[in-house]
């Protein structure tokens, strides 16, 4: 059974269940890179250009980690667009090329382009070409795709219900455990609900859900008794509602999601604060983050903490800033 390596980075957090299902249905063994460690990050930083954003550096590290796992293929998809009229950032468009240019002795890359900004038919063609590498049976490819889509739906529904991606991706599948963990993950249980602070943590899924990279922001906030709201818990239609009054549609999918969530929460939900997490060197975030910050400042008095992550961020520093922020939010809430 040929083995295909998938880096535990970037869109892993958004699409892994679908990719895994698809390849397994085609009879491949799926091999993940290890969880992020300092070694993994360092090996990525070493091959990357200095000013590359942190998540892409980390991606290189995970590719490097997969090299000696005996895989036959490496899955580095080119994600151009996952919906009509919106794109991912240019780095996703050039990712396989950058990996190939910067890194040596790689197993063959599976070049798959995902571009849903075009006609659906084109996407099916690309998908079919990918499947054809492993089976000549078109029905099998079609079935694998269907199952993958279903798997993705399940995953997304679970997240809307309050699970974090890590709950779904890296813990057991048992239903009971899921319920218990959902409760934990919502941060309830420690403090009486009315005392809970509700803080939204917004940012790219690949930053927030990698505990090493995010310095476990979720965990830290939970320990402080904060109820966390993430972007995954806000439905796509709510996100769209958030951005409906913008003059110009946001043409980045992640940008739309972050901005949409931020504005939706500002308008519709009772939240006490927002932590906006961006990575150093991120192009889209430099503009979206700025807009979110300005709109928050102008419209309502909800405190916003802007955290920039890079490979030199220290855990202690992040903790101090989070604590100070939570204290401030608490103080504000109490004095209101």
């Amino acid at each position: 059974m040929p083995a295909i390596g998938i880096p535990r980075a970037l869109l892993y957090y958004d699409y892994y269940p679908a990719w895994k299902k698809f390849f397994e249905e085609l009879g491949l063994e799926v091999v993940l890179s290890d969880k992020t460690t300092k070694t993994i990050l360092d090996s990525g930083v070493k091959v990357a250009l200095d000013e590359t954003c942190l998540p892409v550096k980390l991606f290189y590290g995970h590719v490097d980690n997969l090299k000696n796992k005996g895989i036959d293929y490496l899955f580095v998809p080119r994600l151009v667009s996952v919906e009509k009229k919106r794109y991912l950032c240019p780095k996703f468009l050039g990712l396989p090329n950058m990996v190939e240019s910067l890194m040596e002795e790689l197993p063959p890359l599976l070049d798959f382009k995902m571009d849903l900004s075009r006609k659906k038919r084109e996407f099916y063609k690309d998908l079919y070409a990918l499947g054809r590498k492993f089976t000549i049976n078109p029905f099998k490819i079609c079935l694998a795709y269907r199952k993958a889509v279903k798997e993705l739906k399940r995953y997304e529904e679970k997240m809307l219900a309050g699970f974090t991606p890590l709950d779904c991706l890296e813990r057991g599948e048992g239903e009971n455990r899921e319920k218990k963990e959902a409760a934990i993950s919502l941060g309830e249980g420690k403090l009486p609900v009315e005392e809970n602070l509700r803080i939204a943590v917004l940012g790219h899924s690949y930053n927030l859900n990698d505990p090493y990279i995010s310095m476990d922001i979720y965990g830290k906030l939970k320990k402080m008794g904060v109820k966390i709201i993430t972007r995954e818990m806000i439905s796509p239609s709510a996100q769209m509602e958030g951005i409906k009054n913008l003059r110009k549609d946001i043409f980045w999918t992640f940008g739309k999601e972050i901005m949409g969530s931020a504005l939706y929460l500002l308008d519709k939900e009772k939240i006490d604060g927002v932590v906006l997490v961006v990575s150093f060197g991120c192009g889209p975030d430099s503009l979206i983050g700025e807009l979110v910050e300005r709109i928050y400042k102008r419209h309502r008095n909800i405190p916003l903490l802007f955290l920039t992550l890079d490979e030199h961020s220290g855990e202690a520093g992040i903790l101090t800033r989070l604590e100070a922020f939570v204290d401030m939010v608490k103080f504000k809430k109490e004095s209101a």
Binding site: L49, E51, K91, M98, L102, G283
Partner: peptide, 13 residues
């Protein structure tokens, strides 16, 4: 320009 996204792709290649 520093951190220019498309050009970082180019510069990597």
């Amino acid at each position: 320009p520093f951190t220019c996204t498309p050009e970082i792709v180019a510069q990597s290649i």
